[in-house]
Structures are given as C-alpha cells and as structure tokens.
Amino acid sequence: MHEDWLHDRAKDMRRSPSVQEKRLWSILRDRRLGDMKFRRQVVIGRYVADFVCMRHRLIVEADGPHHEGRIEHDAVRDAWLRSQNFTVLRFPNSQIENRGHEVIAAILAAAGKPLTG
C-alpha cells in the first residue's frame, strides 16, 4: 500500500514540477547532458528522487523552500541512498537559477564526464 502511495506521489510530482525542476529537466532529458539517460521523480526505496541516472548511480536534487528545516531528514535520506551506491547531488534553487553552469559542471564531474564547451 505504501509503495502505491509513493508511485502516485511521484506521478503527481512529474505533473507539477517547480520552475527549477523544469529548468533542470530541460538540460537532463533526452540524453542532452553527456549522453546520460535521466528519469525524473523516481521511487527508490521509500524515497522519491528528483532526477536519476541509473547507469551512473547518480541522483540530482533541486532543493526548494520545502527543504528548509529538513536538514536532518535530508541527511538520513542521502545516507540511505549512498548506502545503495548512489551519488546524491543537491542544488539549491538559487544555484539552479543563477549559476546553472556550476550545476552542469558538478553533474558531469560526478559522472566522470568531461566538461565540453
């Protein structure tokens, strides 16, 4: 039952992404970045990850205002995801909005891909 709820939640999140999630998805979708295949709002265990590249075991999170005050929860979540051999990258909305080049560089570096200009 809990699993069904999580999948429904992920589907709802795909239908109503934040502005920053839309921006990231426009970069990550269709193998546009380093030929990596990303999926969005993916259920992993008891969590929903914003963007996941399974081949590189890479999770990209857009941290909006709902993450404020959830530092401990996010730390537990990230530790569990790391225990499943994922690398978790978190980017605050302000960085996605104002320093997208840093976000792109960090994602490529985490996947071991060269930064191309």
Score class of each variant (00 low, 15 high):
residue 96 I to S: 00
residue 69 G to A: 03
residue 6 L to H: 01
residue 2 H to V: 14
residue 5 W to L: 15
residue 41 Q to I: 05
residue 25 W to V: 05
residue 103 V to F: 08
residue 14 R to A: 07
residue 111 A to C: 06
residue 43 V to L: 05
residue 103 V to K: 06
residue 99 R to H: 12
residue 12 D to I: 12
residue 69 G to R: 03
residue 64 G to Q: 08
residue 37 K to C: 15
residue 95 Q to N: 05
residue 86 F to W: 06
residue 46 R to C: 05
residue 105 A to G: 10
residue 53 C to F: 09
residue 4 D to Y: 13
residue 68 E to Y: 09
residue 65 P to W: 13
residue 83 S to I: 01
residue 68 E to G: 11
residue 106 A to D: 15
residue 63 D to G: 03
residue 89 L to A: 03
residue 29 R to D: 04
residue 77 R to V: 02
residue 104 I to Q: 00
residue 102 E to G: 03
residue 116 T to G: 07
residue 115 L to V: 15
residue 72 E to A: 06
residue 105 A to W: 05
residue 64 G to K: 08
residue 109 A to P: 13
residue 41 Q to E: 15
residue 20 Q to R: 11
residue 70 R to F: 03
residue 10 A to G: 03
residue 82 R to Y: 11
residue 91 F to Q: 07
residue 117 G to S: 15
residue 90 R to G: 02
residue 22 K to V: 08
residue 76 V to Y: 14
residue 99 R to T: 01
residue 79 A to H: 11
residue 53 C to A: 01
residue 42 V to T: 13
residue 38 F to C: 09
residue 7 H to V: 08
residue 45 G to Q: 03
residue 99 R to S: 07
residue 12 D to W: 10
residue 110 A to K: 06
residue 16 S to D: 11
residue 97 E to F: 14
residue 5 W to A: 02
residue 6 L to S: 04
residue 16 S to T: 13
residue 1 M to H: 12
residue 38 F to K: 00
residue 84 Q to K: 04
residue 65 P to Q: 12
residue 95 Q to R: 13
residue 75 A to H: 11
residue 30 D to N: 13
residue 43 V to T: 02
residue 74 D to K: 14
residue 116 T to H: 15
residue 58 L to K: 01
residue 14 R to E: 11
residue 101 H to P: 15
residue 64 G to I: 01
residue 50 D to P: 05
residue 97 E to D: 14
residue 66 H to P: 09
residue 35 D to Y: 01
residue 112 G to A: 09
residue 46 R to F: 12
residue 13 M to F: 01
residue 91 F to A: 02
residue 13 M to H: 04
residue 34 G to Q: 04
residue 43 V to N: 01
residue 90 R to H: 10
